[in-house]
Computed example of a mutant assay.
Amino acid sequence: MAGSGTGTAASGAGARCRGVLLDLDDTLYPQAQFLAAAWDAVAQAAPAALRPALRAALAEVSAQGSDRGRIVDRALERVGGYEARTAAELVDVFREFRPVRLDPYPGVTERLARLAAAVPLVVLTDGNPAQQRAKLVATGLAPLLPHVVCTDELPGGRAARKPAPDGFRQALALLGCAPGEALMVGDRPDKDVAGAARLGIPVLRVRQGEYRRRADQGSESASFGTVAEALDAVREAL
């Protein structure tokens, strides 16, 4: 369904929406903005002779899939002429990188402000918890979103990442909602949509960012071109 399916989104909740789960990366802000700044920092920390080629290689490798792993290592392998110690040091630079500013997608701030005044909201995100929380602060949205579930902090660690049910259940507990009383807003069919749908949480998918060309799962309540459209549909479901 396209963004015009907002009526389906509202009715798909089954009951009045009492809480909202929100993905972070490529849902509330464009992850490419974070990655560009992080790769700048990594390249700058490399030996001077490697910097231009390494920066280009980081962009090329991450464009193949930002969650495929070993991006720094694979970029260095392309460049060549480095020591194993360099790879470990540069991976640490990425892990320790904290963004100063990230721009939310258009319309997000004002829409979240209205929603936060009406129902509880919780961010459900995978990744390095300190880095994920720093991203949220950098967007300026943290005051509107005080409840954050970082799946890597759950007992299963990385195994608890979406679409595993652990984070969704923790988020529902924070919201005080049953699955059919909440809505999930996220961009990834294989994580946000699949994980929420398995628990009976209606999902509004946003086709933005790295995974925007991925086909819908068919288990979405609705699919939208922008998060602003999706948040408008949430508002209608309250």
Rank of each mutant, 00 (worst) to 15 (best):
A2K: 04
G3P: 12
G5P: 00
G5A: 08
G5N: 03
A13H: 13
A13W: 07
G14I: 06
R16Y: 00
L21S: 00
L21V: 01
L21R: 04
L22P: 00
L22Q: 03
D23Y: 07
D23N: 07
D23K: 08
D26I: 01
T27L: 10
L28I: 13
Y29V: 11
Y29F: 15
P30L: 09
P30M: 10
P30H: 08
A37P: 03
D40W: 06
A41H: 12
P47H: 14
P47T: 10
A48T: 15
P52V: 10
P52Y: 11
A53L: 13
R55I: 13
R55E: 14
A59N: 10
A63V: 10
Q64E: 15
Q64F: 12
G65T: 15
R74V: 12
A75R: 07
L76N: 03
R78S: 01
G81K: 11
T86S: 08
L90A: 06
L90I: 05
V91M: 04
D92Q: 09
E96C: 11
R98H: 09
R98V: 13
D103H: 14
D103K: 12
Y105T: 06
T109G: 07
E110G: 12
L112W: 12
L112A: 02
A117I: 06
A117H: 08
V119P: 02
P120N: 12
L121Q: 02
T125R: 02
D126Q: 04
D126I: 04
P129S: 01
P129V: 02
L136P: 09
V137D: 14
V137H: 11
A138E: 00
A138H: 00
L141D: 01
L145N: 04
L145Y: 01
P146F: 08
H147Q: 15
C150E: 13
D152S: 13
E153C: 00
R158S: 08
R158P: 05
A160L: 14
R161H: 15
P163W: 09
Q170N: 02
L172Y: 04
L174W: 13
L175I: 03
L175W: 02
L175D: 01
P179W: 05
P189A: 11
D192F: 04
A196H: 04
A196S: 09
G200W: 06
I201A: 11
V203N: 05
L204G: 03
R205F: 02
R205Q: 10
Q208N: 07
G209A: 04
Y211C: 00
R213L: 07
Q217I: 06
E220A: 03
S221H: 08
S221P: 06
G225V: 07
A230W: 01
